[in-house]
């Protein structure tokens, strides 16, 4: 009566056509996992970018002294030369004490005095327009210095490759999750159509087109997935927010730094879940109807 008074239409599909509670629970869990995968990918990429940036802004130059020149003198001359190169912010010769301090954890005190420690110059590059290894090497050669420049490109490419791999794995996890959600919706649509075969038949015999009937199932499962996706996303948001709050910008580990903006990337999750459900439910329902469900 109330529905008629307000011209509200009763749903043509009965409630819970084919057990929808389990589907909602499953989609919520899958969305939660997809959100964690997405945040993990963004976070790993952020960490890798930070590391790569740090590596990109530094270079190390190893100097070999000429005859009649001490290593410390050669390093000082190299630092002076490098400081004048465009794209270099600062160049500093590393003294033996500092080099020993770096090696001590690895080799211990006993052998340090006998070790031939290389003479190094630490170069801090202009982050906006860093000098390349070639430029630094040329400056060294022009100054008559025998030196090897390491711009950390090997490490940087390793870090970037690892970040790319993690992002790829996260994307694969995300796609697999979407695939699992799609498979669940397809199964639920088939079950729903089987459970409501009399209703489907009646609608069809009363003039409903296949598209209209499929539309009922896609609307039903689309709304359900949107709601379940929202629940999964909100739980994931809560977890990420808690980790960000407790761990600061580094989250739980420096390898996965978290930002408050990460919460924003989770917001489209309900829409994505609904899109997957709508497409899968429609395709499944139309295929079933074509085969005579």
């Amino acid at each position: 009566m109330i529905r008629r008074l307000f011209n509200m239409r009763a749903p043509l599909l009965p409630r819970d056509a084919g057990g929808e509670a389990w589907l909602a629970g499953l989609i919520a869990v899958l969305c939660f996992l997809a959100c964690l995968a997405a945040v993990g990918a963004v976070s790993a990429d952020r960490a890798a970018q930070g590391w790569a940036r740090a590596l990109r802004s530094e270079a190390t130059v190893q100097v070999r002294p000429r005859v009649g020149e001490t290593g410390a003198e050669a390093a000082a001359r190299a630092a002076q030369t490098l400081a004048g190169v465009e794209g270099v912010d600062e160049a500093e010769a590393m003294d033996r004490k500092t080099a020993e301090a770096l090696l001590r954890p690895w080799v211990g005190d006993a052998v340090l005095p006998d070790l031939p420690i290389p003479y190094l110059v630490t170069v801090r590059l202009d982050p906006a327009a860093p000098a390349s290894a070639v430029t630094l090497g040329r400056a060294m050669a022009e100054a008559g210095l025998d030196a090897t420049v390491d711009d950390h490109s090997l490490w940087r490419s390793e870090v970037e490759r690892s970040a790319g791999l993690i992002t790829l794995l996260a994307a694969a996890a995300f796609l697999l999750t979407a695939g699992a959600a799609g498979a669940a919706v397809a199964y639920a649509t088939r079950a729903g159509m089987a459970a409501q075969s009399t209703v489907v038949d009646t609608l069809s015999l009363n003039g409903a087109s296949d598209a209209a009937i499929a539309g009922l199932f896609q609307a039903r499962y689309g709304l359900l997935a949107a709601g379940a996706g929202a629940v999964g996303a909100v739980i994931a948001m809560g977890l990420v927010a808690a980790l960000r709050f407790l761990g600061g910008s580094e989250g739980v580990t420096p390898a996965l730094p978290l930002a408050w903006s990460d919460l924003l990337i989770l917001s489209p999750c309900p829409l994505l879940a609904a899109t997957v459900a709508v497409v899968v439910a429609r395709v499944t329902a139309l295929a079933r109807l074509k085969r005579g469900h």
Binding site: P14, T198, T202, G207
Partner: peptide, 20 residues
């Protein structure tokens, strides 16, 4: 009969009009 049990008598009768 093929009536839809979850719909009221009104909605059952209105069904073909609604589907059209």
């Amino acid at each position: 009969f093929r009536l839809l049990d979850h719909l009221s008598a009104f909605d059952n009768v209105a069904l073909p009009l609604r589907l059209a």
